[in-house]
């Protein structure tokens, strides 16, 4: 009995050690995933948001992107949109905050592929946008994100919509 207890204790200590190592020294993939989840949280906002909160939350978004970021959004039923640069991203965010009574964005299926240089990465994920009061009607888009490590921080410099079901052109592939 004492022997079994010792084995369990050793296994628990090893498990704790591995967990602690992963928390203190996370892999780049893990860091990127948590960064993108933080982005989804930053893009989301609740109803009846105050003016100051609106300004603060939209400003917070720019910290996720490089100054020369390019975002291509192609939602079926709407003309394709391209946002170039942080300022346009900020304006789009302000527009959304002013015209929507809340938005919840979730990212799932985050697949991270680190570049050979380990300072660039490509991420394929699925984004879901839910408006309050319509949890069962949501827009789903698949994206490819390109990220670059700048001053120790992973920043997004390109976003492209992936057409899961393509029509006249093949699904977008990043070079």
């Amino acid at each position: 009995m004492e022997k079994s207890f010792r084995y369990v204790a050793v296994a628990a200590l090893i498990g704790l050690g591995i967990w602690g190592w992963r928390v203190l020294f996370p892999s780049p993939e893990r860091v990127i995933r948590s960064r993108l989840n933080a982005l989804a949280k930053a893009v989301s906002f609740g109803p009846n948001e105050g003016v100051l909160a609106k300004a603060y939350n939209t400003q917070k978004l720019t910290g996720f992107f490089t100054p020369d970021v390019e975002i291509d959004v192609d939602l079926r039923g709407y003309p394709p949109q391209t946002l170039s640069g942080r300022d346009e991203v900020l304006n789009a965010a302000l527009y959304a905050h002013s015209n929507l009574n809340g938005l919840k964005v979730q990212f799932s299926g985050i697949n991270v592929a680190l570049g050979a240089d380990r300072i660039t990465a490509k991420v394929n994920l699925t984004g879901r946008a839910i408006l309050p009061g319509s949890e069962h009607e949501f827009n789903v888009l698949e994206f490819n994100f390109l990220l670059r490590k700048v001053d120790g921080q992973w920043l997004i410099y390109q976003v492209q919509t992936v057409k899961t079901l393509s029509l006249s052109r093949p699904a977008l592939e990043l070079a």
Partner: peptide, 10 residues
Amino acid sequence: IRTSDTTIMY
């Protein structure tokens, strides 16, 4: 048909 994974599919 999966998107980036099987969490959301068509």
